[in-house]
Design a protein around this nucleic acid. Structure first.
Lengths: 113, 113
DNA sequence: CTTTCATATGAATGTCTGCTCATATGATAA
DNA sequence: TTATCATATGAGCAGACATTCATATGAAAG
């Protein structure tokens, strides 16, 4: 029942037991992937302060409206932001407070050496 | 002082003020990027239970030793894991408890709908 | 209805990234 | 030293991804 050259300790069993289902691990990776881009991080940081329309974000980050729009779609698909129409403009906002705690957690790891 | 077609509210000022330096935002993105891969998430989850040698991880995840080794390098560069030699094998372990809290935070966002 | 403004979206492109394969390193055993 | 085991690493490739460009949608003003 062994396919490796050297002996691994028995704790391999517990390690395997503690591992969540593949689908969950995949979803988890996908969630972090959304945070793993500077542009999206910037957008989230901006929305942390105030809800904003697309072109305000574009102006803020000195980026194309198209680029921002594409990224906002990614954020929305991940349920991190929501939007509402207001006349001709569309206002984006954070959908909940998880974003704040996620970013805060990441920040901690960076600052605490 | 306006390059956009419609008026953005004055809060743009505060939004810009609240934004950290570009370098920090970049580092933050890079950190999340490390978590943004299923293989690395699996490795971290495994190490959450027990320190392990490279081939134990490879066996656990049914992946090549080379693939695991490459990913361990990424994790080590990000200071998320450390290692020590023990005879011929090299044991990897989590370098601190931030990993646990980061993953926990991500998990929360997934489960709380 | 037509025009304009704000945003969305599809295709194309260049870059990044994860895995494989072959090979190198480094420690131990013979 | 030589052989072997455990791991590391570089090159190459295929798939994923972020931005751009052109265009589409959709609401409001005229």
């Amino acid at each position: 029942m062994k396919n490796s050259k050297h002996d691994h300790s028995e704790n391999m069993f517990y390690v395997k037991a503690g591992m969540p289902a593949d689908e969950i691990l995949c979803d988890l990776g996908d969630l972090f992937k959304v945070f793993g881009d500077t542009t999206r991080i910037k957008i989230l940081y901006a929305l942390l302060e105030s809800e904003l329309c697309v072109c305000a974000i574009a102006e803020l980050l000195s980026m194309t409206q198209s680029a921002i729009s594409h990224q906002l779609k990614v954020l929305k698909d991940a349920k991190l932001v929501g939007n509402r129409r207001e006349g001709k403009t569309i206002i984006y906002f954070l959908s909940d407070d998880h974003v704040r705690s996620m970013i805060g957690q990441g920040f901690e790891h960076l600052t605490e050496e």
